[in-house]
Design a protein around this nucleic acid. Sequence first.
DNA 1: CGCGCCATTTGGTCAAGCCAATTTGCAGAT
DNA 2: ATCTGCAAATTGGCTTGACCAAATGGCGCG
Lengths: 223, 223
Amino acid sequence: MTDTRRLYQQTADRVRQLIAKGDYQAGARLPAERELAQQLGVSRPSLREALIALEIDGTIEIRMGSGIYVLNTAKPAGNGRSLGESPSELMKARAVIESAIIVQAAATMTEKTLVMLRATLGAMADDIANTRKPIEQDRAFHLIIAESTGNTLFAEIVENLFDERHSPLSAGIRGHFETADSWTAALNEHHAILAALEARDPLAAQAAMHSHLTASGRRWLEN
Amino acid sequence: MTDTRRLYQQTADRVRQLIAKGDYQAGARLPAERELAQQLGVSRPSLREALIALEIDGTIEIRMGSGIYVLNTAKPAGNGRSLGESPSELMKARAVIESAIIVQAAATMTEKTLVMLRATLGAMADDIANTRKPIEQDRAFHLIIAESTGNTLFAEIVENLFDERHSPLSAGIRGHFETADSWTAALNEHHAILAALEARDPLAAQAAMHSHLTASGRRWLEN
DNA sequence: CGCGCCATTTGGTCAAGCCAATTTGCAGAT
DNA sequence: ATCTGCAAATTGGCTTGACCAAATGGCGCG
C-alpha cells in the first residue's frame, strides 16, 4: 500500500529505522544533510522537516556546522519487564513512592474524594465477607488517592506499580496472601490511611501508607 | 538579548503567541503559508519547519489544500484540581518522586557511586563550556542516584519521567531551557545534591533534590 | 612542537517555481 | 429558482539551486 502521509513523516520513520537497525549507534554522526537527502531520495528541505521532527522527539541532536548526531538509545518501549526484580523490591518501591504521593494528596483532599475512598472500603468489606478477593477495591483505593492529586503522572505510576504485582511474572509467588485474615488486616490499614486523610494530616497519612505497604509486602512474602 | 535559537523555534513561538493573544481562536484558520511567512518576515520553508513543530505538539492541524487550523485551546481552568499543564505536572511529579527516592539513596550511598556522580558533573561542566547541551549528563546524574538504591523500579521510574520531557508534547516548550545560564544553574544544584550525598545526609539530599527540580521546572516554563 | 589563520565541511536560510489536493464559483441543466 | 458539474482560484506539498554562518581540520609559520 502507498503511504499517503506527508513526506517528512515517512522520511523521519526511515531515519528512525536506520538508527534502530544499528547503522548508526548512539553518539554517531549521520551523513550530512545534502548526502542523506540524496541517499533517501528526498529534497533537502523535506529532509530538514523530518530532522526537526526527530529533534523534537529527542531521537537526534543537530549541531550547527558540525553535524547530526544520534542521541540516547534509550528504549522507553513497552514492558521492559525482564525484572530480576523481587516482590520485596516492588513493595519497597510502592512504600516509598506512594508515601510521597499521599503527602501531596492529603494537602488537597476534598470531601468528594473521601466519599469515593469510603465507598471502596465498604465494597472491600463486602468482598471479604463473601470470600471474594477485593483486589479491585484495593486497586481503586490506591488509585483514587493518586488521582486526587490532580497529577495524572502520579496516577499512572501507582497504577503501573500495582498491576505489576498481578503480572504473570509475579503470579507464582502469590497464593497464601489471599487469606481472609490478610485482607482484613489490609482493610484495617486502609481505614487508618483514610482517617489520616480525613484529618488532612499529611505526615500521619504518609506514615499510615508506608506502614500499610511494608506490612502488605511482609504478608505477601511470609507464606 | 538576541535570540540565538533556530529560526523555526522562534517562529513557532511567535505563532503560539498569535494564538495565545486571541488573534486566532480554536478552530480558526491561520493565514496561508505564503502570506503568514511574509507577515512574520521569514521564508516559507522556515515557516513550514515551525508549522511542523506546532503540528507535532498539537497546537495546529494542517489540511492539505485547505489551510492551517488552530487546534485545542483546551486550557484546564474549572474546578481547581483538574489537570495541570503537562510540563509543570511532569516536573512536580519528578520533584516529589525523586525527592523520596534520594532519601533511600543517601542511606546506602557508596564511594563508587559518588565517583560516578562526580564524573557526570565534570562532563556536564565540559559540555556547558563547549556550548553543548548536557542532557545526557543530566539524565545520567538522576539515573545513577536512582540506581544506587539497588531497586530497579526506582531507576525505571526516574528514567521514564526524565525521558518524558523529550516527548513530542513537551517539545514546544523546549528551547528556552537550553541557555548556558540555565544549565549552569542546574549544574550548581547538582553540586549541592552531591554534597548532601557525600555527607550521607538524607534530609539535606531530599531538600536539595526537591529544590533542584522545582527550580528546573520554573526555568523550563518561565518564558 | 605549538599556535593561529584559512579553506573546507556542514547546518541555516532564502528565493522561485511547479505539482497536488481542496475549495469556490459560475454556468448549464432540470 | 435550484441543483449539478466542471474549471479556475486557492492553498499546502515538494523540489531545485543558491548563498550565508558556524564549526572543523589542516597547513604553514613562529
